[in-house]
Design a protein around this nucleic acid. Structure first.
Length: 414
RNA sequence: GCCGGGAUAGGGUAGCUUGGUUAUCCUAGGGGACUGUGGAUCCCCUGACUCGGGUUCAAAUCUCGGUCCCGGCCCCA
């Protein structure tokens, strides 16, 4: 038997219906914020992703050479393709450009809980300007999406990469060491960061300031302790979020994100119930367009790990009720089967989802089947009813039955 | 890439320690009883030891390797 490749999944109809439903919830929220959907290719020139993330990502990329000798990679994320698209074809559109996307991405990693080689991301990018308004808008969108899904236990943490980078530079940390230190700080591994800083000759005072900064965690009020431009900036973001009624966010200046290209505000959301792979959303402000041959344009965006957030919802016991089918048409005998085809067809033409027995089952078995496919109503087509140009409509949850004229059926079921 | 735990019908499981009849039970699916009414009962049927090698008279069971899954580490754009 052929198995599916490692780290991939099949989605059976029940699961797919649930996924499509929540995907629709996310789309809807994005649209209410004035974002419009885009789609980009599932594969791109590998170079695109290397430009964004550095050549070390090649290890985790599904990359191959195609028949035309091109270096191709399955997309590992969708920010770079979105910005490439912007540079290629949207750079003269009125700003800000608000776009969102949903689709699968691929990473060659060891699969574990909430981590797959083929996974789904829902993301949004706001291209236009670097200002608190844009950042607040993006955070508000992310917060609204998570809320709309019904997830309860999660935290959104907002930080600012600029402050920390500046601080490290001022303290004399060379550029090539910055990433390593930021990585330690991101995980709050102060014990491991300290000796590196000492080696680099960073003073006691500067080290203390760095640790204090990354340790600035809490509600919006902790921002009053943050000096300088970044402090003012985040206070503006917080102010706008407050006006928008976004409450479920915290400040954590230790949020660092992995990448060099983030320029200012960064944020993450996590669902603690997920364990090791608990991050459900990540984003921030950045510039990428200049890397892809365009002018430098400031953007801010985020991506939600769709699979993870669904997993978190499942762990919280949030259940999705399957829709089932509106009507199931059951001929009472083979003699009236022909009439039943006409009725099911009439219902379908009117937009009422309907099905009928294709297995040649007798009535009792057909009823049973109607029940197992979640039919709301069963339309019993029998000789007795037909003689009055009617059918019997049985409500499957109550068991009540009514005689309805065929000419009235569509109206009755609508 | 590293450490650990797993894999028995479509789903969930017993059996494995101590190798030995036709591999257990539940559920699902198909058919039938009920001759025009589902979620009830009864009967029948379908359907599994992850794959490959080794040990053995004999392997679901012991052993080695592959594959996949799960928990964690690394990484996480």
């Amino acid at each position: 038997m052929i198995q599916k490749p490692r780290g991939t999944r099949d989605f059976l109809p029940d699961e797919m219906e649930r996924r499509r439903h929540y995907e629709g919830v996310l789309r809807h929220v994005a649209e209410t914020f004035g974002f419009r959907e885009i789609a980009t290719p599932i594969f791109e020139e590998a170079e695109l992703f290397i430009l964004r993330s550095g050549s070390n990502i090649l290890n985790e990329l599904y990359a191959f050479r195609d028949k035309g000798d091109r270096e191709i990679a399955l997309r590992p994320e969708m920010t770079a393709p979105a910005i490439r698209m912007f540079v290629n074809s949207m750079s003269n559109e009125p700003k800000p450009i608000k776009m969102f996307y949903f689709g699968q991405c691929f990473r060659y990693e060891r699969p574990q809980s909430g981590r797959y080689r083929e996974f789904y991301q829902f993301g949004a990018e706001l291209i236009g300007n670097k200002n608190p308004e844009s950042d607040a808008e993006i955070i508000a969108l992310a917060a609204s999406m998570i809320k709309a899904l019904g997830l309860r236990d999660y935290r959104i943490r907002i930080g600012h990469i600029g402050v920390l980078r500046q601080k490290l530079a001022d303290a004399g940390v060379p550029k090539e060491k910055t990433a390593e230190i930021l990585q330690k700080l991101d995980k709050k591994l102060y014990d491991e960061a300290e000796p590196i800083l000492i080696d680099l000759g960073v003073s006691d005072l500067a080290r203390q300031e760095i640790f204090d900064l990354t340790g600035t965690v809490g509600g919006m009020e902790v921002l009053s302790n943050v000096p300088g431009e970044a402090g003012d900036y985040l206070r503006s973001v917080a102010e706008i979020l407050g006006r928008m009624g976004v409450r479920d966010v915290d400040i954590d200046l230790g949020v660092v994100r992995g990448l060099d290209y983030y320029t200012g505000m960064v944020f993450e959301a996590e669902a603690p119930a997920l364990g090791a792979e608990k991050q459900i959303c990540g984003g921030g402000s950045y510039t990428l367009s200049e890397l892809f041959g365009g002018e430098q344009v400031f953007s801010t965006g985020f991506a939600i790990g769709f699979d993870r957030i669904l997993l978190a919802m499942e762990k919280e016991g949030i259940e999705y009720g399957l829709r089932g089918i509106d009507a199931y048409v059951v001929p009472a005998s083979d003699a009236v089967r022909g009439e039943a085809y006409g009725i099911v067809s009439m219902l379908r033409d009117s937009g009422i989802s309907s099905d009928m027995d294709l297995m040649g089952r007798k009535m009792a078995k057909a009823m049973k089947h109607a029940s197992s496919v979640g039919a709301g109503k069963v339309i019993i087509v029998g000789e007795k009813e037909l003689s009055e140009r009617s059918v019997t409509v049985r409500d499957m949850s109550s068991g009540d039955q009514t005689l309805i004229r065929i000419s009235e059926l569509v109206r009755y079921l609508s």
